[in-house]
C-alpha cells in the first residue's frame, strides 16, 4: 500500500486554495490533469505527490480516483514518495551509454550505499532515495545533451563529460554541504 504519509494532517487551507486556483487555471484545457499534477508536485517541498493531495484533487475535479492514480503512476516525472534534498539524475541516453554512463550509475549506487531492495523499477529505470533523504538518484531516458555525453544533472544543473572521479567529488561536496533547515 502506498500511503506513507497517512499520519500527517490533511491539507492545510493554503494548500487547498493553491490547488483550487490551479483547477480554475487549467479548467477544461487539454492536458489539464498532467499540468495540475506537474504544478502541484513542483510546489511540494519534497517534490512529490502526497496521497492526501491526490485525495483532495480527486474530490475537486471530475476525474475518477483510479484514473488519477493511473496517470500519477504512469509518467516517470511523478513521484509518489518524498524526494531527497539533492537529486542526482544520470542520463541513460544512447550517447551517454556508449560513453560509459552505466558505470557512473553503478559507481554512484555504491557511493550512496544503495542496495537492490531500495530501488524501484528495473536496473536501469531507477529512482531511489537514501534513507536519510539527502540524496535521490534517478535515471532519465535522455536529456538531449548528447554532444556533452556522459551527462549528469545535479540539482537541475547539467554536468558534462563527467567521469567517475568528478562525479564522486561533486557528491562529496554536496554531502559536506550544510543540511537544509
Amino acid at each position: 500500500m502506498n500511503s506513507p504519509t497517512l499520519s500527517e494532517p490533511r491539507l492545510r487551507p493554503q494548500e487547498q486554495e493553491f490547488i483550487d486556483r490551479l483547477i480554475v487555471k487549467y479548467h477544461g484545457s487539454p492536458g489539464m490533469l498532467l499540468s495540475l499534477l506537474e504544478e502541484i508536485q513542483e510546489s511540494q517541498p519534497n517534490k512529490y505527490l502526497p496521497m492526501e493531495v491526490l485525495e483532495y484533487l480527486a474530490s475537486r475535479i471530475d476525474v475518477p480516483r483510479a484514473q488519477i492514480y493511473s496517470v500519477a503512476t504512469f509518467y516517470s516525472l511523478f513521484n509518489l514518495k518524498p524526494q531527497g534534498e539533492h537529486t542526482v539524475c544520470i542520463c541513460r541516453g544512447t550517447a551517454c551509454h556508449t560513453r560509459g554512463s552505466r558505470s557512473l550509475l553503478e559507481r554512484l549506487k555504491l557511493q550512496l550505499g544503495f542496495k537492490e531492495e531500495d530501488e524501484e523499477g528495473s536496473a536501469d529505470k531507477l529512482s531511489a532515495t537514501t534513507p536519510d533523504r539527502r540524496f535521490t538518484l534517478r535515471t532519465v531516458a535522455c536529456f538531449g545533451q548528447c554532444a556533452l555525453a556522459p551527462v549528469v544533472e545535479v540539482d537541475h544543473a547539467i554536468l558534462s563529460h563527467v567521469n567517475e572521479r568528478t562525479l564522486e567529488r561533486e557528491i562529496e561536496t554536496l554531502r559536506k554541504g550544510s543540511r537544509k533547515a
Binding site: G31, L34, E38, S70, V71, F74, Y75, V140
Partner: peptide, 26 residues
C-alpha cells in the same frame, strides 16, 4: 497552448499523446 509531457516515451505515438492530453495514461 503549451502542455508539458511528464516523461513517457510512448507519448511520441500520436494516439498515446492524445490520450495523455485527455488526462489519461499515455
Amino acid at each position: 497552448q503549451l502542455v508539458e509531457g511528464a516523461g513517457a516515451f510512448v507519448c511520441g505515438e500520436e494516439t498515446a499523446l492524445i490520450r495523455s492530453l485527455e488526462g489519461k495514461a499515455g
